[in-house]
């Protein structure tokens, strides 16, 4: 009678332990969800960094005085990636500049598109296709007053049981004329990856 119960019990526990093989399934997920697939810099980190930096910049009293009756023009310099990973830092600056622009307090010039602008203006001016009275003129652009720049650094440590990564993102706003750093802030992220001994 004992064996009658033992064998099925063993079978069930074996199945439970080994688990079933999963079929691959494609689903749409929540883009705003916290993502913890691995320890590397991920979408949640990008969203956190962008949100915190934008919030800090927008509520800073100094920036409040800068934006009283005007919308200062900013140029975004690249974020230097000092981590050991390959991170698309342009994506971080894109998120930050989009949020700042949408807040209605700042305006931006895009240095990444200067060549295209020049090409288009040259076409308008000398292509012979555009009405000269309606062609946009060279030398009418507005110069940036401020430069946004920063660094992303990391400290990575690991042993055989767990790994730990610490990111520090620093962002600064410099007045291009006076060279003064008007605003600066940093945000930190810590992520750890360890083994879970009992997990289903």
């Amino acid at each position: 009678m004992k064996k009658f119960f033992i064998l099925p019990a063993v079978a069930i526990s074996l199945l439970a332990i080994s688990g079933c093989t999963n079929k691959s399934v494609v689903r749409y997920g929540d883009a705003a969800a916290v993502e913890t697939t691995d320890i590397n810099f991920g979408s949640t980190d990008l969203q956190k960094v962008a949100a915190e930096m934008t919030d800090s910049l927008l509520i800073s009293p100094v920036v409040g005085t800068l934006t009283v009756n005007t919308r200062p023009v900013i140029f975004v310099e690249s974020i230097k990636n000092k981590t050991s990973e390959h991170i698309d830092t342009e994506s971080i600056t894109d998120s930050i500049s989009t949020k700042l622009l949408r807040s209605g307090k700042f305006r931006f010039v895009d240095m990444g598109r200067v060549a295209s602008v020049r090409e288009q203006l040259q076409y308008q001016q000398s292509g012979g296709m555009v009405d000269t009275s309606k062609a946009k003129q060279f030398g009418q652009q507005i110069g940036a007053q401020y430069m946004l720049y920063g660094n992303l650094a990391s400290i990575v440590k690991s042993n055989q049981d767990q790994s730990d990564v610490y990111y520090k993102f620093t962002l600064r706003l410099m007045d291009l004329e006076s060279g003064l750093v008007e605003w600066a802030d940093e945000t930190e992220i810590r992520k750890t990856k360890g083994k879970e001994y009992i997990s289903w």
Binding site: D30, A32, A51
Partner: peptide, 10 residues
Amino acid sequence: VEPGKSPWKS
């Protein structure tokens, strides 16, 4: 206002 753009924060 800007729906779907506010991420879950841990």
